[in-house]
């Protein structure tokens, strides 16, 4: 049996596509970090992750309350954040720098939404003023911790402010 011209073209086309198809099948896949994921699963429902260096910040629901957790990925353990949490505060968004030293946080507290910066070595919480005033929502922090980007609602429009961290 011989191939006609059309069959030859089809055969060449399929042969040419094979490496691409095989590459697609054999492409490396991301590997779930099983041990860490099991620990995160056990900690409770979680959302809003921020990953930087060996640090993961996220919002975990426990006992009917949302709280910020910072996980040291090397030790696979959460670290304490004294002075960051208030039982009457609702965290909305969190971001961590690459050293796990600075956390930017948007939270609702006493009927208002505020942006704060937490410095872990000082256990210090510092309000970040928004000028002109607005309502913050999602925040992101540069890996070197020098600047944050925050989504702010002003007069019905969402804007992005870039704020240098002093």
């Amino acid at each position: 049996m011989t191939l006609g011209a059309g069959g030859l073209v089809r055969a060449v086309t399929v042969a040419g596509a094979l490496p691409v198809l095989l590459a697609g099948c054999l492409a490396p896949l991301p590997q779930p970090m099983v041990g860490l994921n099991q620990r995160l699963e056990a900690a409770g429902p979680a959302r809003a992750p921020s990953l930087s260096g060996d640090w993961l910040a996220l919002i975990v629901s426990r006992g009917g309350r949302d709280r910020v957790e910072l996980v040291d990925l090397q030790r696979q353990q959460p670290v304490p954040l004294p002075g960051l949490e208030r039982p009457d505060a609702q965290p909305l968004s969190v971001a961590v720098d690459g050293r796990g030293e600075r956390l930017a946080l948007v939270r609702q507290l006493e009927g208002r939404t505020e942006l704060v910066l937490y410095r872990r070595n000082l256990m210090a919480l510092q309000p970040v003023p928004l000028q002109p005033p607005g309502v913050p929502r999602r925040v992101s922090l540069r890996a070197d911790g020098r600047e944050l980007a925050v989504e702010v609602s002003r007069q019905g429009q969402w804007q992005v402010d870039l704020i240098a961290v002093p």
Binding site: M123, A124, L125, Q126, V160, D161, L162, P166
Partner: peptide
């Protein structure tokens, strides 16, 4: 004890444009 630093340093803001 946690510190609350208010008004420390200056925050230079710029719009993303």
């Amino acid at each position: 004890m946690a510190l609350l630093l208010s008004g420390c340093g200056s925050w230079a803001r710029r719009s993303a444009g």
